[in-house]
Design a protein around this nucleic acid. Structure first.
Lengths: 119, 119
DNA sequence: CTAATAATTAGCTAATCGGCTAAGTAACTG
DNA sequence: CAGTTACTTAGCCGATTAGCTAATTATTAG
Protein backbone atom coordinates (compact mmCIF):
# COMPACT_ATOMS: atom_id res chain seq x y z
CA UNK A 1 0.00 0.00 0.00
CA UNK A 2 2.87 2.37 -0.54
CA UNK A 3 1.16 4.87 -2.74
CA UNK A 4 1.97 8.45 -2.13
CA UNK A 5 -1.09 10.45 -1.21
CA UNK A 6 -0.19 13.35 -3.48
CA UNK A 7 0.21 11.30 -6.62
CA UNK A 8 -2.92 10.20 -8.47
CA UNK A 9 -3.31 6.44 -8.61
CA UNK A 10 -2.69 6.06 -12.30
CA UNK A 11 -1.56 2.50 -11.94
CA UNK A 12 -5.04 1.14 -11.36
CA UNK A 13 -6.24 0.59 -14.90
CA UNK A 14 -9.75 1.89 -15.51
CA UNK A 15 -12.28 -0.68 -16.63
CA UNK A 16 -13.47 -0.47 -20.20
CA UNK A 17 -16.91 0.80 -19.28
CA UNK A 18 -15.42 3.45 -17.02
CA UNK A 19 -13.45 4.76 -19.95
CA UNK A 20 -16.51 4.59 -22.13
CA UNK A 21 -18.69 6.54 -19.73
CA UNK A 22 -16.11 9.14 -18.85
CA UNK A 23 -15.18 9.92 -22.44
CA UNK A 24 -18.82 9.98 -23.50
CA UNK A 25 -19.62 12.33 -20.65
CA UNK A 26 -16.78 14.68 -21.52
CA UNK A 27 -17.89 14.88 -25.13
CA UNK A 28 -20.25 17.76 -24.42
CA UNK A 29 -19.00 21.32 -23.89
CA UNK A 30 -21.45 22.05 -21.15
CA UNK A 31 -20.38 18.97 -19.24
CA UNK A 32 -16.70 19.81 -19.59
CA UNK A 33 -17.55 23.30 -18.44
CA UNK A 34 -19.42 21.98 -15.42
CA UNK A 35 -16.39 19.93 -14.50
CA UNK A 36 -14.15 22.97 -14.72
CA UNK A 37 -16.50 25.12 -12.70
CA UNK A 38 -16.63 22.45 -10.02
CA UNK A 39 -12.90 22.22 -10.15
CA UNK A 40 -12.30 25.92 -9.66
CA UNK A 41 -15.18 27.33 -7.72
CA UNK A 42 -15.46 24.99 -4.86
CA UNK A 43 -15.31 21.52 -3.67
CA UNK A 44 -19.04 21.28 -3.43
CA UNK A 45 -21.55 23.37 -5.33
CA UNK A 46 -25.34 23.40 -5.27
CA UNK A 47 -26.99 22.70 -8.58
CA UNK A 48 -28.73 26.06 -8.68
CA UNK A 49 -25.39 27.80 -8.50
CA UNK A 50 -24.22 25.76 -11.45
CA UNK A 51 -27.44 26.11 -13.42
CA UNK A 52 -27.39 29.91 -13.19
CA UNK A 53 -24.05 29.99 -14.94
CA UNK A 54 -25.45 28.66 -18.18
CA UNK A 55 -27.71 30.11 -20.81
CA UNK A 56 -29.89 27.04 -21.02
CA UNK A 57 -32.63 25.98 -18.66
CA UNK A 58 -32.09 24.51 -15.24
CA UNK A 59 -33.51 21.08 -16.15
CA UNK A 60 -30.94 20.89 -18.92
CA UNK A 61 -28.21 21.38 -16.35
CA UNK A 62 -29.82 18.73 -14.17
CA UNK A 63 -29.67 16.36 -17.13
CA UNK A 64 -26.01 17.06 -17.74
CA UNK A 65 -25.25 16.59 -14.07
CA UNK A 66 -26.95 13.22 -14.22
CA UNK A 67 -24.73 12.17 -17.08
CA UNK A 68 -21.65 13.23 -15.14
CA UNK A 69 -22.92 11.41 -12.10
CA UNK A 70 -23.60 8.22 -14.05
CA UNK A 71 -20.05 8.43 -15.35
CA UNK A 72 -18.80 8.71 -11.80
CA UNK A 73 -17.34 12.12 -12.49
CA UNK A 74 -19.42 13.87 -9.87
CA UNK A 75 -21.17 12.87 -6.69
CA UNK A 76 -24.22 14.43 -5.10
CA UNK A 77 -24.97 15.08 -1.51
CA UNK A 78 -28.47 16.19 -0.68
CA UNK A 79 -29.06 18.45 2.24
CA UNK A 80 -32.34 20.19 2.86
CA UNK A 81 -33.64 21.60 -0.39
CA UNK A 82 -30.21 21.64 -1.95
CA UNK A 83 -28.13 19.21 -3.95
CA UNK A 84 -24.43 19.65 -3.63
CA UNK A 85 -22.28 18.37 -6.43
CA UNK A 86 -18.69 17.40 -5.92
CA UNK A 87 -16.12 16.60 -8.58
CA UNK A 88 -14.20 13.36 -8.48
CA UNK A 89 -11.05 14.88 -9.93
CA UNK A 90 -9.12 11.72 -9.34
CA UNK A 91 -11.38 9.64 -11.48
CA UNK A 92 -11.18 12.01 -14.42
CA UNK A 93 -7.42 12.18 -14.15
CA UNK A 94 -7.11 8.45 -13.83
CA UNK A 95 -9.38 7.49 -16.71
CA UNK A 96 -8.38 10.19 -19.17
CA UNK A 97 -4.76 10.21 -18.08
CA UNK A 98 -4.41 6.47 -18.42
CA UNK A 99 -5.91 6.48 -21.88
CA UNK A 100 -3.59 9.27 -22.91
CA UNK A 101 -0.74 7.18 -21.60
CA UNK A 102 -1.66 4.39 -23.99
CA UNK A 103 -0.77 6.70 -26.82
CA UNK A 104 2.88 6.66 -25.99
CA UNK A 105 4.82 4.61 -28.50
CA UNK A 106 6.07 2.04 -26.00
CA UNK A 107 8.13 -0.17 -28.25
CA UNK A 108 8.59 -0.54 -31.98
CA UNK A 109 5.77 -3.02 -32.58
CA UNK A 110 4.63 -4.84 -35.68
CA UNK A 111 4.26 -2.42 -38.48
CA UNK A 112 1.93 -2.92 -41.34
CA UNK A 113 3.71 -3.87 -44.52
CA UNK A 114 2.46 -3.89 -48.07
CA UNK A 115 1.94 -7.39 -49.41
CA UNK A 116 4.63 -8.62 -51.74
CA UNK A 117 6.52 -5.54 -52.68
CA UNK A 118 8.88 -3.26 -50.78
CA UNK A 119 12.65 -3.68 -51.27
CA UNK B 1 8.76 28.82 -18.10
CA UNK B 2 11.58 26.80 -19.52
CA UNK B 3 10.03 24.08 -21.57
CA UNK B 4 12.04 21.04 -22.39
CA UNK B 5 12.25 20.14 -26.05
CA UNK B 6 11.31 16.51 -25.47
CA UNK B 7 8.10 17.50 -23.79
CA UNK B 8 5.06 17.98 -26.02
CA UNK B 9 4.13 21.58 -26.59
CA UNK B 10 1.43 21.77 -23.99
CA UNK B 11 1.87 25.48 -23.57
CA UNK B 12 0.14 26.28 -26.84
CA UNK B 13 -3.43 26.39 -25.69
CA UNK B 14 -5.82 24.56 -27.97
CA UNK B 15 -8.62 26.62 -29.44
CA UNK B 16 -12.07 26.00 -28.09
CA UNK B 17 -13.29 24.33 -31.25
CA UNK B 18 -10.24 22.07 -31.33
CA UNK B 19 -11.11 20.86 -27.87
CA UNK B 20 -14.69 20.44 -28.90
CA UNK B 21 -13.90 18.35 -31.95
CA UNK B 22 -11.26 16.22 -30.31
CA UNK B 23 -13.35 15.34 -27.29
CA UNK B 24 -16.40 14.69 -29.44
CA UNK B 25 -14.34 12.43 -31.69
CA UNK B 26 -12.93 10.48 -28.77
CA UNK B 27 -16.37 9.87 -27.34
CA UNK B 28 -16.86 6.74 -29.42
CA UNK B 29 -15.18 3.43 -28.51
CA UNK B 30 -14.45 2.54 -32.08
CA UNK B 31 -12.74 5.86 -32.68
CA UNK B 32 -10.64 5.56 -29.54
CA UNK B 33 -9.77 2.08 -30.66
CA UNK B 34 -8.76 3.29 -34.10
CA UNK B 35 -6.48 5.83 -32.49
CA UNK B 36 -4.83 3.16 -30.39
CA UNK B 37 -4.39 0.80 -33.32
CA UNK B 38 -2.80 3.60 -35.30
CA UNK B 39 -0.62 4.38 -32.35
CA UNK B 40 0.66 0.85 -31.92
CA UNK B 41 0.60 -0.86 -35.26
CA UNK B 42 2.29 1.59 -37.45
CA UNK B 43 2.81 5.13 -38.32
CA UNK B 44 0.66 4.83 -41.37
CA UNK B 45 -2.05 2.26 -42.00
CA UNK B 46 -4.34 1.68 -44.97
CA UNK B 47 -8.03 1.93 -44.23
CA UNK B 48 -8.71 -1.66 -45.25
CA UNK B 49 -6.26 -2.88 -42.65
CA UNK B 50 -8.10 -0.88 -40.04
CA UNK B 51 -11.57 -1.83 -41.27
CA UNK B 52 -10.82 -5.54 -41.10
CA UNK B 53 -10.11 -5.26 -37.41
CA UNK B 54 -13.67 -4.36 -36.55
CA UNK B 55 -16.89 -6.32 -36.54
CA UNK B 56 -18.82 -3.62 -38.35
CA UNK B 57 -18.82 -2.82 -42.03
CA UNK B 58 -16.05 -1.05 -43.84
CA UNK B 59 -18.13 2.06 -44.63
CA UNK B 60 -18.71 2.42 -40.93
CA UNK B 61 -14.97 2.53 -40.38
CA UNK B 62 -14.67 5.04 -43.19
CA UNK B 63 -17.19 7.20 -41.42
CA UNK B 64 -15.32 7.03 -38.13
CA UNK B 65 -12.08 7.85 -39.88
CA UNK B 66 -13.73 10.92 -41.36
CA UNK B 67 -14.74 12.07 -37.90
CA UNK B 68 -11.18 11.61 -36.66
CA UNK B 69 -9.86 13.43 -39.69
CA UNK B 70 -12.26 16.35 -39.22
CA UNK B 71 -11.07 16.58 -35.63
CA UNK B 72 -7.50 16.74 -36.87
CA UNK B 73 -6.64 13.54 -35.05
CA UNK B 74 -5.63 11.67 -38.18
CA UNK B 75 -4.38 12.61 -41.61
CA UNK B 76 -4.80 10.73 -44.85
CA UNK B 77 -2.38 10.19 -47.66
CA UNK B 78 -3.75 8.64 -50.80
CA UNK B 79 -1.56 6.50 -52.94
CA UNK B 80 -2.85 4.29 -55.70
CA UNK B 81 -5.97 2.52 -54.55
CA UNK B 82 -5.03 2.91 -50.93
CA UNK B 83 -5.61 5.50 -48.26
CA UNK B 84 -3.02 5.65 -45.56
CA UNK B 85 -4.06 7.04 -42.24
CA UNK B 86 -1.59 8.55 -39.83
CA UNK B 87 -2.21 9.56 -36.24
CA UNK B 88 -1.43 13.04 -35.03
CA UNK B 89 -0.39 11.90 -31.58
CA UNK B 90 0.79 15.34 -30.68
CA UNK B 91 -2.56 16.91 -31.22
CA UNK B 92 -4.37 14.41 -29.06
CA UNK B 93 -1.83 14.82 -26.30
CA UNK B 94 -1.94 18.56 -26.52
CA UNK B 95 -5.71 18.98 -26.54
CA UNK B 96 -6.61 16.30 -24.03
CA UNK B 97 -3.55 16.88 -21.89
CA UNK B 98 -4.14 20.60 -21.69
CA UNK B 99 -7.73 20.12 -20.68
CA UNK B 100 -6.70 17.65 -18.04
CA UNK B 101 -4.24 20.21 -16.79
CA UNK B 102 -7.06 22.65 -16.21
CA UNK B 103 -8.38 20.32 -13.56
CA UNK B 104 -5.50 20.96 -11.27
CA UNK B 105 -6.55 23.10 -8.34
CA UNK B 106 -4.22 25.97 -9.09
CA UNK B 107 -5.04 28.28 -6.26
CA UNK B 108 -7.72 28.45 -3.61
CA UNK B 109 -10.25 30.46 -5.56
CA UNK B 110 -13.61 31.85 -4.62
CA UNK B 111 -15.63 29.17 -3.00
CA UNK B 112 -19.35 29.11 -3.00
CA UNK B 113 -20.83 29.99 0.33
CA UNK B 114 -24.34 29.50 1.61
CA UNK B 115 -26.24 32.74 1.96
CA UNK B 116 -26.52 33.90 5.49
CA UNK B 117 -26.11 30.89 7.69
CA UNK B 118 -23.37 28.38 8.44
CA UNK B 119 -21.05 28.92 11.41
C1' DC C 1 -10.40 -4.16 -72.60
C1' DT C 2 -12.33 -6.71 -68.52
C1' DA C 3 -12.18 -8.10 -63.98
C1' DA C 4 -10.75 -7.54 -59.47
C1' DT C 5 -9.38 -4.73 -55.59
C1' DA C 6 -9.48 -0.67 -52.38
C1' DA C 7 -11.98 2.48 -50.73
C1' DT C 8 -15.54 6.09 -50.64
C1' DT C 9 -20.18 8.06 -51.35
C1' DA C 10 -25.18 7.95 -51.18
C1' DG C 11 -29.01 7.26 -48.91
C1' DC C 12 -31.94 4.87 -45.62
C1' DT C 13 -33.25 4.03 -40.71
C1' DA C 14 -33.34 3.33 -35.76
C1' DA C 15 -31.58 5.08 -31.70
C1' DT C 16 -29.65 8.48 -28.85
C1' DC C 17 -28.98 13.30 -27.50
C1' DG C 18 -29.95 17.64 -25.86
C1' DG C 19 -32.91 21.18 -25.61
C1' DC C 20 -37.48 22.83 -23.91
C1' DT C 21 -41.88 23.50 -20.82
C1' DA C 22 -44.87 21.94 -17.38
C1' DA C 23 -45.65 19.42 -13.47
C1' DG C 24 -44.17 17.31 -9.21
C1' DT C 25 -41.70 16.87 -4.67
C1' DA C 26 -39.67 18.23 -0.62
C1' DA C 27 -38.03 21.60 2.57
C1' DC C 28 -38.07 26.05 4.60
C1' DT C 29 -40.54 30.66 5.81
C1' DG C 30 -43.99 33.57 7.57
C1' DC D 1 -51.43 26.38 7.18
C1' DA D 2 -50.16 28.68 2.48
C1' DG D 3 -46.54 30.29 -0.20
C1' DT D 4 -41.93 30.25 -1.78
C1' DT D 5 -37.61 28.12 -2.89
C1' DA D 6 -34.63 24.47 -4.72
C1' DC D 7 -34.47 21.13 -7.51
C1' DT D 8 -35.95 16.90 -10.22
C1' DT D 9 -39.01 14.24 -13.19
C1' DA D 10 -41.87 13.59 -17.19
C1' DG D 11 -42.56 13.88 -21.60
C1' DC D 12 -42.29 16.06 -26.11
C1' DC D 13 -39.45 17.03 -30.21
C1' DG D 14 -35.97 18.18 -33.62
C1' DA D 15 -31.14 17.18 -34.69
C1' DT D 16 -27.44 14.27 -34.80
C1' DT D 17 -25.22 9.74 -34.72
C1' DA D 18 -24.03 5.40 -36.17
C1' DG D 19 -25.10 1.52 -38.29
C1' DC D 20 -26.38 -0.84 -42.71
C1' DT D 21 -26.57 -2.03 -48.02
C1' DA D 22 -26.00 -0.69 -52.63
C1' DA D 23 -23.79 2.03 -55.91
C1' DT D 24 -19.75 4.52 -57.46
C1' DT D 25 -14.93 5.80 -58.32
C1' DA D 26 -10.35 4.86 -59.19
C1' DT D 27 -6.39 1.95 -59.65
C1' DT D 28 -4.12 -2.26 -60.79
C1' DA D 29 -3.88 -7.04 -62.90
C1' DG D 30 -4.63 -10.32 -66.45
Amino acid sequence: MSKSPTQPELSIAPRLDETEQVFAALAHVVRRQLVLVLSHFGDELPSGYLAKRFAHSWPTTTRHLHVLEAAGIVEVRREGRSSFYRLDRERVRRVVGTWLGLLEPVSPTRKWQPKGKRT
